[in-house]
């Protein structure tokens, strides 16, 4: 993975892991790699890797079973919630790009129809 070097790496990896959870590439209940394996896969600092898991757990996206490992949450409402946030973010970006080109909010449905 190529990182943007001026954005915190833990946020970039979290975004990628979240995307994998939302698209189903990683499924609810799946075991996640250990933080050392995560560090090796992404070639990042081991402290950053453990911070990623702390943060995922804080957001309710994963949970730890002591001595066994870290797992993706099986609570579908949490995943739904994050999917919702992601949709809002993507649509927000989409709208602001269109506005930058001078399109009005009410033109959007017509444009979607035209370029579908």
């Amino acid at each position: 993975m190529d990182f943007k070097s001026n954005v915190p790496i833990y946020l970039q990896v979290i975004a990628e892991l979240k995307a994998k959870m939302l698209t189903g590439e990683i499924r609810p209940g799946d075991k996640l790699p250990s933080s050392r394996e995560l560090a090796l896969t992404y070639q990042i600092n081991p402290n950053t890797a453990s911070r990623i898991y702390t943060e995922l757990e804080r957001q309710g996206l994963s949970y730890t079973r002591r001595g066994i490992g870290t797992f993706v949450t099986e609570d579908s409402s949490v995943l739904e919630y994050h999917k919702d946030l992601e949709l809002k973010r993507i649509i927000g970006e989409f709208k602001s790009s269109l506005k930058a080109l001078g399109c009005m909010e009410e033109d959007i449905p017509r444009l979607l129809e035209k370029y579908k």
Binding site: S5, N6, V7, I9, L11, R51
Partner: peptide, 14 residues
């Protein structure tokens, strides 16, 4: 370095 990126938006190179 993570807080350098987070607080100043700067990479080590920058």
């Amino acid at each position: 370095v993570e807080s350098l990126r987070e607080k100043e938006g700067l990479s080590i190179v920058e």
